[in-house]
Design a protein around this nucleic acid. Structure first.
Lengths: 254, 254
DNA sequence: GAGTGTGAATCCTTTCACAGCT
DNA sequence: AGCTGTGAAAGGATTCACACTC
């Protein structure tokens, strides 16, 4: 902490709001699908529907990137794919290491969504000596002892932590010391990192708890209604309860 | 779609903001850890640190639940654990089904964080007949044909989708028709559901893309600085760039 | 006519700062 | 003295609605 240099207007260096950044991958996915179907242009309305947001939000989001559309026509799909990819930094290759090759780590290693974007699994790392050398998803698992060397040799700046909670902070510190500056954390712990390092967390159990909260509320509403139907019974009539859009942030580990 | 603006009542009665709900599981986790260490009370400052938020936010969050603290002292750990659990609906048992038992589905089935909160994996479902009967995490996989029956027999209202993207919408529709009203979606697709059904998504690839965005920005800043150091080199000096807290919402599939 | 780009209004979230209880 | 609980202020994000362009 205590960096003398007060600089950096935090999140908005060149202006793109975090909320917008978080949606760019969504747009990119929808656009990629359109591109594969050789659709040449889309309107904000159509693209928004495909991405699951509303069109005003989408247009506002795009306005932060520049004026890439044509009034009266819409957006050129290929051009937008390129612009968003560039904005997200996906025109370059990002080597990634996954630490902790248990069930989840193995699932991540096998996940196809990596290569399709600019990510490449550079290495798999696990603390269990028995795993060393075994291939997972075609990549041999390496031992934690070599973590630093692996990071440096491959120029890795993004690390994925899929270890048990107890090991996460220590792994995190080693990753950061070796040069990693972005971490995706699946372990159910709060990681503390120095300034300049980004952490995002994904926590399955938290997501379920949020669902349970709303689920409980629905049940309560039902009970309050005059009718003693059993538990099941396909709902559907009830009006939505979540926000108008149901697109709230929040994240968690699995 | 084209649901007329869903009317207003929404979160009316107990009015807990979504952002607060999304943090309750975080507090609960920190409190549970304290409870296990037999710590009797915590201050907002300490608990906030353990949960990775700031204390003003935490106090404001708790103020929506009621006045559960004691001025000059702090919060009673056990009492808070109970209150938050109750608020989240974790004092009851939530049967959950996981559809799509590939690498990820299997990892989820094996994930311990379920039972520890009020969740119970009631069934695993997969479309591959070859999987039927095979036990995963001690639970026999059942075939998709029986999906409706399984949901109804077990009174399941929360479903987890871990299928390939192409199958997700159809699975989703069957789950909803059978009575599921909350869905956790790991497939990289936008699900469309009727009003009254909650969907949360977890998308690994999106999380990585967000990290790449910030990573790219860091690299740009560095390049702008007068110094031609090589790629690696343990950073750390650089002042933070992300928001003051780095705790932005957003979600994605794996 | 169709559909983008964007100021202005609205809504939600976070932070401040301090009154009030123990 | 210490720490919670909360109005009020500040800051973001979303939505509105319409001028403007093709």
């Amino acid at each position: 902490m205590a960096t003398g240099r007060t600089h950096r207007p935090a999140t908005r260096s060149r202006g793109i709001p975090e909320a917008t950044v978080a949606r760019l991958p969504l747009y990119l996915r929808a656009l990629t699908a359109l591109s594969e179907r050789s659709v040449p242009t889309v309107s904000s309305e159509e693209l928004a529907a495909a991405a699951g947001v509303n069109s005003a939000k989408l247009r506002k989001d795009f306005s932060y990137l520049g004026s890439y559309g044509t009034r009266g026509v819409g957006y050129d799909v290929e051009y937008l794919v390129y612009q968003i990819s560039r904005e997200l930094g996906l025109t370059q290759d990002w080597p990634v290491v996954i630490v902790g090759i248990g069930n989840l780590g193995a699932a991540l290693a096998n996940y196809g969504g990596f290569a399709s974007r600019g990510f490449r699994v550079a290495a798999l790392i696990d603390a269990d000596p028995a795993m060393a050398g075994k291939p997972v998803a075609g990549i041999p698992v390496q031992h934690t002892d070599d973590l630093e060397k692996i990071i440096e040799d491959n120029g890795v700046s993004i690390g994925v932590i899929a270890t048990p909670a107890g090991a996460a902070q220590q792994v995190c510190e080693r990753l950061v010391a070796a040069g990693v500056t972005s971490i995706l954390n699946f372990a159910p712990t709060v990681l503390s990192v120095p300034d300049g390092v980004d952490v995002r967390k994904v926590d399955l159990s938290i997501e379920l708890q949020i669902l349970a909260f709303h689920e409980q509320r629905k049940a309560g509403e039902e009970a309050a209604s005059p009718d003693g139907a059993g538990p099941a019974s396909a709902t559907r009539s009830k009006s939505a309860d979540k926000g108008p859009d149901g697109d709230v942030p929040a994240v968690m580990p699995a």
